[in-house]
């Protein structure tokens, strides 16, 4: 089988498209690179969705934590404390255990043009269950970063806004929020990298792999197990992670420059 054939048969194997059976013997370097790369689809999926959804939840949590109302402040604080205070590994286990306890049910939801069935059994599948865990995790960490940034917004800026008669709403959207993002961005970049790396932990979580569809580490360990040689698959997956990390750094660096373009002292 040529490498191109391998790519067409296994390139999308991790999402169930292509050959049903994984290669069993005569593993080539190409097999390993393609299948592990196929698994990276899931790592990217987890990272992108958890980060983008987590961002919004994190902003609400940070505002809750910063609020004068104890009804918002205390739950937000407690949530951030538990998430930041415990290893993700243990969070994965506990959330999986909680999800299997939920009775299996389904609802039909009519969206007008299409009717979809929402089922609770999805929660115990990695694509949703692990995503929720990562989402909660990144929301907790990001909220703490944003909260710290909110606290560091210069008082003068807000006083100036009040002085020119801005409403509370205007102050938030025009002053607090953009300043918070600008101050928090370097730390948030780190958090994005950490979260992306944390997607590798899905393999070690309790969420099972269905029909041999798994993340990159699933395939890497498959090859390590079959070839009994850890020195090929794990460096391959390491190279994939380094490349994607560089991409994150570039992307977030671009946003950072946009956020800071009006700041004069930016040398």
């Amino acid at each position: 089988m040529s490498c191109f054939d391998t790519l067409t048969s296994y390139g999308l194997r991790s999402i169930g498209i292509g050959e049903r059976l994984l290669p069993k013997s005569d593993f080539t370097l190409c097999d390993q690179v393609v299948l592990i790369g196929s698994g990276m689809i899931w790592n990217v999926y987890f990272a992108v969705l958890a980060l983008s959804l987590g961002f919004f939840f994190a902003v609400s949590l940070a505002l809750g934590r910063n609020s004068d109302n104890a009804l918002f402040r205390i739950p937000a604080h407690a949530f951030i404390f538990v998430i930041r205070g415990s290893p993700l590994f243990i969070q994965f286990f506990l959330i999986y255990e909680a999800f299997v306890l939920i009775p299996k049910m389904g609802w039909d939801i009519n969206l007008g043009f299409i009717e979809i069935t929402v089922e609770t059994k999805w929660l115990t599948k990695a694509w949703l269950g692990a995503l929720i865990t990562l989402f909660l995790n990144t929301a907790g960490y990001t909220a703490n970063i944003f909260y710290g940034a909110l606290q560091s917004i210069p008082k003068g800026d807000i006083e100036a806004a009040l002085a020119i008669g801005m409403s509370k709403r205007q102050i938030f959207w025009r002053i607090s929020f953009p300043t918070m993002l600008r101050l928090a961005w370097p730390s948030y970049t780190n958090e994005a990298i950490f979260l992306f790396h944390a997607t590798a932990l899905v393999f070690f979580s309790s969420f099972p792999a269905w029909r041999q569809k798994g993340d990159s580490l699933y395939y890497a360990s498959y090859f390590a197990d079959k070839t009994f040689n850890p020195f090929v698959p794990y460096p391959i997956i390491a190279v994939y992670f380094i490349s994607f990390t560089l991409l994150i750094i570039l992307l977030f660096g671009y946003v950072n420059r946009r956020l800071n373009r009006h700041v004069a002292s930016n040398t």
């Binding site: 059976l21 994984l22 070690f204 979580s205 309790s206 099972p208 792999a209 269905w210 029909r211 041999q212 798994g214």
Partner: peptide, 11 residues
Amino acid sequence: AASDATVVEFA
């Protein structure tokens, strides 16, 4: 995995 059944793998 090689049979007709659906395989679910746990750690």
